[in-house]
């Protein structure tokens, strides 16, 4: 059974058809890439999946439950985490605090009036945050303020923040954007390592090397519509897809 089932989702923005009758299935434990030329609607789709945008029509069902109309925090608590295109982290707080916030949310739910809880109780949360950060390669900068990190490291931090929830579905919006070849490679490695424990991932990507080396399935969006959906080999030779990119990407 699909982990995430999107059916006939459409979204208009003042005459612009951002998403037009989009349907796709995300199978559990897979890495599913969404690609397409700029403006194809990929980010809009992610926004719909995380509850930041409400579609005009269609359904989004996660693990058998509809996500439509749910607030963003609820969707996150159900197991969907998102890495944004521009890293969204807490710039004036330390790396440990950044991840600890997510760990607290995972531990306590969307709201808990624990304002008198002794700081001691935060110790296991801190330890969990530290181990996640070490795992992801940021162990040396635990107490640095997040704003001092490079862009690539900020993205790693954001990933760590998402992982604190142990999400079942991780959505990544252009995780390798703006990265050097070296960084892209280590990010891809990281993602591959994470999928060994069965975490399902949806990745929006432009770097075709990453897409083709990592994904189990690829969906291609063009002008809000799906023009192809299948395993990498199928997409590679697909003439419609090549046309859509019109010599942009080297497949």
């Amino acid at each position: 059974m699909a982990l995430l089932e999107v059916r006939n989702v459409s979204k208009h923005f003042a005459g612009l058809r951002a998403l037009d009758d989009v349907s796709l299935s995300i199978a559990p434990g897979t890495i599913h890439a969404i690609i397409g030329p700029n403006g194809a609607g990929k980010s809009t789709l992610l926004n719909v999946l995380t509850g930041l945008i409400v579609p005009d029509t269609g359904s989004v069902v996660f693990d058998g439950q509809s996500l439509l109309g749910l607030p963003a925090y609820d969707i996150n608590q159900r197991g969907i985490a998102r890495v944004f295109q521009t890293p969204e982290i807490f710039p004036d707080m330390s790396l440990v605090e950044n991840v600890a916030i997510a760990a607290v949310a995972a531990r306590d739910g969307s709201y808990r009036a624990n304002f008198f809880q002794h700081p001691r109780a935060l110790q296991p949360v801190r330890e969990k945050a530290e181990s996640i950060l070490a795992d992801i390669g940021l162990g040396a900068y635990l107490n640095t303020e997040a704003r001092h990190l490079s862009r690539g490291d900020k993205r790693r931090l954001e990933l760590a923040v998402c992982l604190a929830h142990q999400p079942r579905l991780l959505l990544l919006d252009e995780p390798t954007a703006g990265m050097s070849h070296h960084e892209t490679h280590s990010t891809a490695e990281l993602l591959r390592r994470l999928s060994r424990n069965g975490m399902t991932k949806v990745i929006i990507e432009h770097d075709m090397d990453v897409v083709f080396s990592l994904s189990d399935r690829i969906t291609v969006l063009h002008q809000g519509r799906i023009i192809a959906d299948g395993p990498p080999d199928e997409i590679r030779g697909n003439p419609t897809v090549q046309e859509a990119y019109l010599g942009g990407a080297h497949l």
């Binding site: 995380t50 607030p71 963003a72 925090y73 996150n76 608590q77 985490a81 998102r82 944004f84 969204e88 982290i89 807490f90 710039p91 004036d92 707080m93 605090e97 600890a100 916030i101 997510a102 607290v104 949310a105 995972a106 739910g109 969307s110 709201y111 935060l122 923040v161 998402c162 929830h165």
Partner: peptide, 19 residues
């Protein structure tokens, strides 16, 4: 901790499961 996070980046906090 969460209050400070809200001041720091409210969007991120909401996307991290906090009401």
């Amino acid at each position: 901790l969460i209050l400070r996070a809200i001041k720091s980046n409210e969007t991120r906090v909401a996307s991290t499961g906090i009401d």
